[in-house]
Protein backbone atom coordinates (compact mmCIF):
# COMPACT_ATOMS: atom_id res chain seq x y z
CA UNK A 1 0.00 0.00 0.00
CA UNK A 2 1.44 3.33 -0.93
CA UNK A 3 -0.78 6.34 -1.24
CA UNK A 4 0.70 9.71 -2.03
CA UNK A 5 -0.87 12.82 -0.57
CA UNK A 6 0.10 16.28 -1.75
CA UNK A 7 -1.21 19.07 0.44
CA UNK A 8 -1.18 22.65 -0.81
CA UNK A 9 2.31 22.42 -2.30
CA UNK A 10 4.00 25.53 -3.69
CA UNK A 11 7.40 25.76 -5.30
CA UNK A 12 9.13 29.09 -5.77
CA UNK A 13 12.60 30.03 -6.93
CA UNK A 14 13.41 33.56 -5.75
CA UNK A 15 10.78 35.71 -7.45
CA UNK A 16 9.44 33.02 -9.72
CA UNK A 17 6.54 30.82 -8.72
CA UNK A 18 6.77 27.48 -10.49
CA UNK A 19 3.90 25.57 -8.91
CA UNK A 20 1.12 26.73 -6.67
CA UNK A 21 -1.77 25.26 -4.73
CA UNK A 22 -1.09 21.67 -5.75
CA UNK A 23 -3.47 19.34 -3.94
CA UNK A 24 -3.56 15.74 -4.97
CA UNK A 25 -4.42 12.37 -3.53
CA UNK A 26 -2.90 9.48 -5.40
CA UNK A 27 -4.29 6.15 -4.38
CA UNK A 28 -2.26 3.03 -3.96
CA UNK A 29 -1.31 1.28 -7.21
CA UNK A 30 -2.50 4.14 -9.36
CA UNK A 31 -0.62 5.02 -12.54
CA UNK A 32 -0.61 8.77 -12.80
CA UNK A 33 0.63 10.57 -15.89
CA UNK A 34 1.65 14.21 -15.54
CA UNK A 35 1.33 16.17 -18.76
CA UNK A 36 1.67 19.80 -19.67
CA UNK A 37 3.62 22.20 -21.85
CA UNK A 38 7.39 22.59 -21.40
CA UNK A 39 8.31 24.60 -18.35
CA UNK A 40 5.01 24.00 -16.58
CA UNK A 41 6.75 22.48 -13.60
CA UNK A 42 5.92 18.82 -14.07
CA UNK A 43 9.56 17.76 -13.73
CA UNK A 44 9.94 20.06 -10.72
CA UNK A 45 6.97 18.27 -9.21
CA UNK A 46 8.59 14.90 -9.82
CA UNK A 47 11.81 16.16 -8.26
CA UNK A 48 9.87 17.07 -5.14
CA UNK A 49 8.40 13.57 -5.02
CA UNK A 50 12.01 12.32 -5.19
CA UNK A 51 13.14 14.71 -2.41
CA UNK A 52 15.67 16.07 -4.87
CA UNK A 53 14.03 19.41 -4.11
CA UNK A 54 11.86 20.50 -1.21
CA UNK A 55 8.52 22.28 -1.59
CA UNK A 56 8.54 25.96 -0.60
CA UNK A 57 5.20 25.47 1.11
CA UNK A 58 2.93 22.56 1.85
CA UNK A 59 3.77 18.93 2.39
CA UNK A 60 3.99 15.62 0.61
CA UNK A 61 3.06 12.42 2.43
CA UNK A 62 3.52 8.80 1.49
CA UNK A 63 1.20 6.50 3.40
CA UNK A 64 0.46 9.44 5.69
CA UNK A 65 4.11 9.99 6.59
CA UNK A 66 6.06 13.04 5.44
CA UNK A 67 8.69 12.41 2.78
CA UNK A 68 12.27 11.90 3.88
CA UNK A 69 14.50 14.89 3.15
CA UNK A 70 16.61 12.94 0.65
CA UNK A 71 16.02 10.22 -1.93
CA UNK A 72 15.32 6.81 -0.37
CA UNK A 73 14.80 3.29 -1.59
CA UNK A 74 11.01 3.50 -1.17
CA UNK A 75 10.88 5.70 -4.26
CA UNK A 76 12.52 4.27 -7.38
CA UNK A 77 13.22 6.41 -10.41
CA UNK A 78 13.93 6.09 -14.11
CA UNK A 79 15.20 9.20 -15.91
CA UNK A 80 15.24 9.86 -19.62
CA UNK A 81 19.05 9.69 -19.65
CA UNK A 82 21.91 8.63 -17.36
CA UNK A 83 19.68 6.18 -15.49
CA UNK A 84 22.17 3.32 -15.57
CA UNK A 85 25.81 3.14 -14.56
CA UNK A 86 28.08 3.09 -17.61
CA UNK A 87 30.97 1.33 -15.85
CA UNK A 88 29.00 -1.79 -14.96
CA UNK A 89 27.73 -4.56 -17.20
CA UNK A 90 24.00 -5.17 -17.54
CA UNK A 91 24.16 -7.83 -14.84
CA UNK A 92 26.43 -5.65 -12.72
CA UNK A 93 23.94 -2.80 -12.88
CA UNK A 94 21.10 -4.93 -11.51
CA UNK A 95 23.39 -6.66 -9.03
CA UNK A 96 24.49 -3.27 -7.70
CA UNK A 97 20.95 -2.59 -6.48
CA UNK A 98 21.09 -5.73 -4.35
CA UNK A 99 24.64 -4.96 -3.24
CA UNK A 100 23.54 -1.53 -2.02
CA UNK A 101 20.69 -3.25 -0.18
CA UNK A 102 22.53 -6.15 1.40
CA UNK A 103 26.26 -5.52 0.92
CA UNK A 104 26.74 -3.48 4.10
CA UNK A 105 29.38 -0.79 4.42
CA UNK A 106 31.37 -1.77 1.35
CA UNK A 107 28.25 -2.47 -0.77
CA UNK A 108 29.68 -5.77 -2.00
CA UNK A 109 28.41 -9.33 -1.79
CA UNK A 110 30.55 -12.46 -1.69
CA UNK A 111 30.15 -16.20 -1.96
CA UNK A 112 26.68 -17.64 -1.52
CA UNK A 113 25.00 -14.28 -0.94
CA UNK A 114 26.49 -13.06 -4.21
CA UNK A 115 25.38 -16.17 -6.10
CA UNK A 116 21.86 -15.80 -4.74
CA UNK A 117 21.78 -12.12 -5.69
CA UNK A 118 23.03 -12.97 -9.17
CA UNK A 119 20.20 -15.46 -9.57
CA UNK A 120 17.67 -12.82 -8.57
CA UNK A 121 19.28 -10.29 -10.90
CA UNK A 122 19.18 -12.76 -13.80
CA UNK A 123 15.50 -13.47 -13.12
CA UNK A 124 14.81 -9.73 -13.21
CA UNK A 125 16.76 -9.33 -16.47
CA UNK A 126 14.80 -12.20 -17.93
CA UNK A 127 11.61 -10.43 -16.94
CA UNK A 128 12.55 -7.29 -18.90
CA UNK A 129 13.93 -9.29 -21.83
CA UNK A 130 17.63 -8.59 -21.38
CA UNK A 131 18.74 -12.07 -20.32
CA UNK A 132 21.10 -12.63 -23.25
CA UNK A 133 22.74 -9.22 -22.92
CA UNK A 134 23.96 -9.56 -19.34
CA UNK A 135 27.66 -9.20 -20.19
CA UNK A 136 27.28 -6.03 -22.27
CA UNK A 137 28.00 -2.51 -21.09
CA UNK A 138 25.20 0.09 -21.33
CA UNK A 139 27.00 1.94 -24.15
CA UNK A 140 26.56 -1.23 -26.24
CA UNK A 141 22.78 -1.28 -25.72
CA UNK A 142 20.13 0.57 -27.69
CA UNK A 143 18.16 3.34 -25.98
CA UNK A 144 15.18 1.06 -25.39
CA UNK A 145 17.35 -1.66 -23.87
CA UNK A 146 19.02 0.89 -21.59
CA UNK A 147 15.61 1.95 -20.29
CA UNK A 148 14.62 -1.68 -19.72
CA UNK A 149 17.80 -2.09 -17.73
CA UNK A 150 17.02 1.06 -15.75
CA UNK A 151 13.58 -0.39 -14.94
CA UNK A 152 15.06 -3.73 -13.90
CA UNK A 153 17.66 -2.05 -11.72
CA UNK A 154 15.01 0.04 -9.98
CA UNK A 155 12.31 -2.61 -9.60
CA UNK A 156 14.57 -5.24 -8.08
CA UNK A 157 14.70 -3.01 -5.00
CA UNK A 158 10.87 -3.30 -4.79
CA UNK A 159 10.11 0.41 -4.39
CA UNK A 160 6.63 1.41 -3.24
CA UNK A 161 6.53 4.28 -5.69
CA UNK A 162 8.03 4.37 -9.16
CA UNK A 163 8.79 7.80 -10.59
CA UNK A 164 9.36 8.11 -14.32
CA UNK A 165 10.77 11.29 -15.87
CA UNK A 166 9.97 11.14 -19.59
CA UNK A 167 11.52 7.69 -19.62
CA UNK A 168 10.46 6.77 -23.14
CA UNK A 169 10.65 10.24 -24.72
CA UNK A 170 13.87 9.61 -26.63
CA UNK A 171 12.91 6.22 -28.08
CA UNK A 172 11.82 5.26 -31.59
CA UNK A 173 8.07 4.74 -31.93
CA UNK A 174 8.38 0.97 -32.52
CA UNK A 175 10.62 0.39 -29.55
CA UNK A 176 8.40 2.63 -27.49
CA UNK A 177 5.45 0.30 -28.16
CA UNK A 178 7.42 -2.68 -26.82
CA UNK A 179 8.50 -0.90 -23.72
CA UNK A 180 4.96 0.37 -23.11
CA UNK A 181 3.80 -3.23 -23.10
CA UNK A 182 6.55 -4.07 -20.62
CA UNK A 183 5.63 -1.09 -18.46
CA UNK A 184 1.97 -2.17 -18.39
CA UNK A 185 2.98 -5.67 -17.38
CA UNK A 186 5.33 -4.50 -14.63
CA UNK A 187 2.69 -2.18 -13.24
CA UNK A 188 0.24 -5.07 -13.13
CA UNK A 189 2.64 -7.54 -11.56
CA UNK A 190 4.58 -5.45 -9.07
CA UNK A 191 3.01 -3.66 -6.15
CA UNK A 192 3.66 -0.19 -7.48
CA UNK A 193 2.25 3.28 -7.51
CA UNK A 194 3.56 4.97 -10.63
CA UNK A 195 3.94 8.67 -11.35
CA UNK A 196 5.14 9.40 -14.88
CA UNK A 197 6.03 12.73 -16.46
CA UNK A 198 5.51 12.74 -20.19
CA UNK A 199 4.83 15.18 -23.00
CA UNK A 200 3.23 12.49 -25.12
CA UNK A 201 -0.54 12.54 -24.64
CA UNK A 202 -1.18 9.17 -26.25
CA UNK A 203 1.44 7.63 -23.98
CA UNK A 204 -0.26 9.26 -21.01
CA UNK A 205 -3.72 7.94 -21.92
CA UNK A 206 -2.35 4.64 -23.13
CA UNK A 207 -0.69 3.71 -19.86
CA UNK A 208 -2.18 5.67 -17.01
CA UNK A 209 -5.21 5.31 -14.80
CA UNK A 210 -5.29 9.04 -14.31
CA UNK A 211 -3.94 11.90 -16.36
CA UNK A 212 -3.12 15.20 -14.69
CA UNK A 213 -2.40 18.30 -16.72
CA UNK A 214 -0.40 21.20 -15.31
CA UNK A 215 -0.79 24.63 -16.80
CA UNK A 216 0.44 28.07 -15.97
CA UNK A 217 -2.46 30.53 -16.14
CA UNK A 218 -1.74 33.78 -17.91
CA UNK A 219 -4.00 36.07 -15.99
CA UNK A 220 -1.88 39.13 -16.53
CA UNK A 221 1.24 38.95 -18.68
CA UNK A 222 2.87 41.74 -16.66
CA UNK A 223 3.23 39.67 -13.53
CA UNK A 224 3.28 36.29 -15.25
CA UNK A 225 6.05 34.94 -13.07
CA UNK A 226 4.02 35.56 -9.95
CA UNK A 227 1.58 32.85 -10.97
CA UNK A 228 2.77 29.28 -10.84
CA UNK A 229 1.34 26.37 -12.73
CA UNK A 230 -1.72 24.72 -11.25
CA UNK A 231 -3.55 21.48 -11.90
CA UNK A 232 -5.64 22.31 -14.92
CA UNK A 233 -7.23 18.95 -15.64
CA UNK A 234 -7.52 15.77 -13.62
CA UNK A 235 -8.89 13.06 -15.87
CA UNK A 236 -9.67 9.55 -14.81
CA UNK A 237 -9.01 7.25 -17.75
CA UNK A 238 -12.20 5.39 -18.58
CA UNK A 239 -12.94 2.52 -18.59
CA UNK A 240 -10.88 2.09 -15.48
CA UNK A 241 -7.61 0.26 -15.57
CA UNK A 242 -7.07 -1.70 -12.39
CA UNK A 243 -3.63 -2.96 -11.50
CA UNK A 244 -3.45 -6.73 -11.67
CA UNK A 245 -6.81 -7.06 -13.42
CA UNK A 246 -7.38 -7.64 -17.14
CA UNK A 247 -7.18 -4.42 -19.04
CA UNK A 248 -10.58 -3.19 -20.20
CA UNK A 249 -8.82 -1.56 -23.12
CA UNK A 250 -8.03 -4.74 -24.95
CA UNK A 251 -10.41 -5.88 -27.63
CA UNK A 252 -12.71 -8.49 -26.13
CA UNK A 253 -12.66 -10.56 -29.34
CA UNK A 254 -9.99 -12.80 -27.87
CA UNK A 255 -12.60 -14.51 -25.72
CA UNK A 256 -15.38 -14.47 -28.28
CA UNK A 257 -15.60 -16.88 -31.18
CA UNK A 258 -15.26 -14.34 -33.91
CA UNK A 259 -11.77 -14.03 -35.44
CA UNK A 260 -9.69 -11.09 -34.27
CA UNK A 261 -9.73 -8.26 -36.78
CA UNK A 262 -6.59 -7.94 -38.85
CA UNK A 263 -4.49 -4.81 -38.95
CA UNK A 264 -6.36 -3.38 -41.92
CA UNK A 265 -9.85 -4.27 -40.73
CA UNK A 266 -12.06 -1.57 -39.30
CA UNK A 267 -11.65 -1.36 -35.55
CA UNK A 268 -14.09 -3.45 -33.58
CA UNK A 269 -16.63 -1.39 -31.71
CA UNK A 270 -15.94 -1.24 -28.02
CA UNK A 271 -18.93 0.80 -27.10
CA UNK A 272 -16.79 3.91 -26.82
CA UNK A 273 -16.60 7.05 -28.86
CA UNK A 274 -13.96 6.80 -31.56
CA UNK A 275 -12.37 9.99 -30.30
CA UNK A 276 -11.67 8.49 -26.91
CA UNK A 277 -7.91 8.61 -26.47
CA UNK A 278 -8.09 5.57 -24.26
CA UNK A 279 -8.69 3.52 -27.40
CA UNK A 280 -5.09 3.96 -28.40
CA UNK A 281 -3.94 1.68 -25.62
Amino acid sequence: MSTITIRNVWKEYDERVVLERINLDIESRAFVALVGPSGCGKTTFLRMLLSEEAPSKGEILIDGKPLAGEPTAERGVVFQRYSVFPHLTVLGNVLLSLEFERGGFFARLFGGARRKAMEEARAMLDCVGLAEHEKKYPAQLSGGMQQRLALAQTLIRKPKVLLLDEPFGALDPGIRGDIHALMRRLWNEESLTVVMVTHDLSEAFGLATRVIAFERPRLDPVDGDRYGAVIKEDIEVWPRRIAGADSPHRTPVLVSNSPAPGLDDPAASKGLGQDDLALQA
Binding site: P71, V77, S97, E101, R157
Partner: peptide, 11 residues
Protein backbone atom coordinates in the same frame (compact mmCIF):
# COMPACT_ATOMS: atom_id res chain seq x y z
CA UNK B 1 20.81 11.51 -12.21
CA UNK B 2 23.38 8.84 -11.41
CA UNK B 3 23.81 10.07 -7.86
CA UNK B 4 20.05 10.35 -7.35
CA UNK B 5 19.55 6.91 -8.84
CA UNK B 6 22.14 5.39 -6.52
CA UNK B 7 20.38 6.98 -3.56
CA UNK B 8 17.04 5.52 -4.63
CA UNK B 9 18.76 2.13 -4.64
CA UNK B 10 19.60 2.71 -0.98
CA UNK B 11 23.28 3.61 -1.31
Amino acid sequence: QQLIKAQTLGA
